[in-house]
Design a protein around this nucleic acid. Structure first.
Lengths: 257, 257
DNA sequence: TCGTATATGATCAAAATTGAAAGAAAACGA
DNA sequence: TCGTTTTCTTTCAATTTTGATCATATACGA
């Protein structure tokens, strides 16, 4: 038996019973007590349990949970503050009876979380992770567009997805883009996602682009749409003043937070 | 044998069994232990498995995965061991070029995790959480059926989902059911999910029911199908001997693990 | 054909794992 | 408080596993 297997078994016992003694674990795993103690030491280092005199105790869920969520992805993932503010502004645009659509992306994930509790709201998305994230909360009606799953972005794309979209109409589309350029319009790196985005734009009454300031002036491989389709843009204060003026001149409502 | 072929075989063994020793792999592949170690090193670099002293473990069987997950659900969710064994047996039935379909459910989630690394495999599912769980790993093609998201089970159901299914055909369906009764057939508590299940059965060449022993003799509100559609049943040793005989008499292949 | 690059295997010293033993620390009862 | 018992840590030795180095074989292109 690998040491790692013991770790797993120990965690199972400890989590299930809430605690375990060294003698019990030594017996259950068929290794010496010295080895059990060394295992417990390692598991405590990883903050998976708490050692005690004579054994170990389960760590309360929230301790490890809280520590984990923020420490890994979110620190690296920059612009969290900005995106949170964008999401807050976006959520304010949504009324209870709307049918809204969300494209994949971190900002839209933040928007989704802020919609929890809105009664009667319909949410349509092609981001599997967004659906799962808010799927446990009642009162929201969540429609997930099927299709081929793209890695990393968790976007559902392809003919299956586009076909499904044709039966749907929504009030507001929150469109996350990678590039927003006055001349080239909206762009994104992936062809399949661009095609999906276009479909989604075509079935939405109102198109709201959410993009932090770093997205402006950028152009990516796949063209999504011209700026003519955009009704509203929400971004953060980092946006260039001049550019902001030019966007407004195009008749687009620009919300800066 | 090419190195690439070895990688695939190693991933299969590791993911199906959850672990493998260097000696085992050396034996199975007919290469020296030195070569196996070099292979494992490469596979670990690609983050497809975790090396241990003496071999390697599947990502899904490791502490970092297991510890967090189990602490919450495990107390209520019994029969983990049994379900793991069922999942292992199920994974063995799947060959690389198959197109398989998975219904929502904990057992099917376990099966999905064991499929990581199978090259060219197509996985179709209407369980959003299963898709997200394995969505990050390369080499799998994952198709998620869209639809209305049901809370708790993360099943995607409804007309949208059923319509999508009509364009799809799969080799094997792994069907998780809540009730399996000789007289009443397959049943489940939710009407919408039962309807989805029926659709899925109709587009699958082979129907494989995965159910721990507690599911037998149970009958729920919504009828899914008669036992006539079932080709194979995988369950654990807890199943009643007499019942096992009766199932086999129906011409159903019964796998007990 | 030759030379080179790549993959694999063999060998062996270094590192990791484990358990036993002994001393140190902590818990506990009187 | 003291002494006893239990538990823990440290140290060491036996064993296993690993990684590095070298040798061999095979494939490939000039």
């Amino acid at each position: 038996m690998f040491a790692e297997e013991r770790y797993v078994r120990i965690m199972e016992v400890v989590n299930q019973a809430g605690k375990a003694t060294v003698a019990e674990l030594s017996e259950a795993l068929g290794v010496s007590q010295v080895t059990v103690r060394r295992d417990l030491e390692k598991l405590e280092e990883k903050e998976l349990l708490l050692r005690t005199h004579g054994g170990a105790m389960a760590l309360h869920a929230h301790v490890s949970e809280v520590a984990h969520e923020k420490s890994f992805s979110e620190k690296e993932e920059a612009l969290v503050e900005e995106k949170e503010r964008i999401a807050e502004a976006a959520a304010k645009l949504i009324s209870d009876e709307d049918a809204v659509m969300l494209t994949p992306g971190t900002t839209n994930m933040l928007i989704a979380k802020r919609l929890i509790g809105k009664k009667g709201l319909k949410i349509v998305t092609n981001a599997a992770n967004i659906a799962v994230q808010i799927g446990n909360y009642p009162e929201l009606e969540i429609i997930l567009i099927g299709g081929k799953l793209r890695r990393k972005s968790f976007a559902l794309v392809g003919p299956l997805a586009e076909e499904t979209l044709q039966n749907i109409r929504v009030d507001k589309l929150f469109l996350g883009v990678d590039g927003f350029d006055l001349k080239e319009g909206l762009t994104t790196p992936n062809l399949a996602e661009a095609s999906m985005d276009r479909q989604m734009i075509s079935i939405a009454k109102e198109v709201i682009v959410v993009a932090d300031h770093t997205k402006f002036g950028k152009v990516f491989f796949s063209h999504v749409a011209t700026l003519g389709v955009v009704h509203t843009v929400i971004t953060d204060e980092g946006i260039n003043r001049e550019l902001a003026g030019q966007i407004r001149e195009l008749g687009i409502r620009l919300i800066i937070v």
